[in-house]
């Protein structure tokens, strides 16, 4: 299960963040950390990107990148 598969209102816990190293690093810096709970808040009108909340951060990212966020 990955973050991209959650529908708005659903939550999950991050197991690991994978993908291109620079992007992974940025996601970590933005507060998506292993073991944290994430919630999908919204999906943009054209189906991409998505808005998520993790800890106190509110981020938007594309589904293709959210596929790299593996949930427990």
């Amino acid at each position: 299960m990955t973050l991209a598969e959650l529908t708005p209102g659903r939550r999950g816990r991050i197991a690991s963040v994978t993908g291109e190293p620079a992007l992974v690093q940025r996601l970590y810096e933005l507060g998506l950390c292993d073991g944290d709970e994430v919630e999908v808040l919204a999906v943009a009108p054209l189906g991409d990107p998505i808005e998520v909340r993790c800890g106190g951060s509110r981020l938007s990212l594309r589904k293709s990148d959210a596929h790299g966020v593996i949930l427990e």
Partner: peptide, 9 residues
Amino acid sequence: PAFVMEMPQ
């Protein structure tokens, strides 16, 4: 490019 952005309050 990737699109990762913070959404402010």
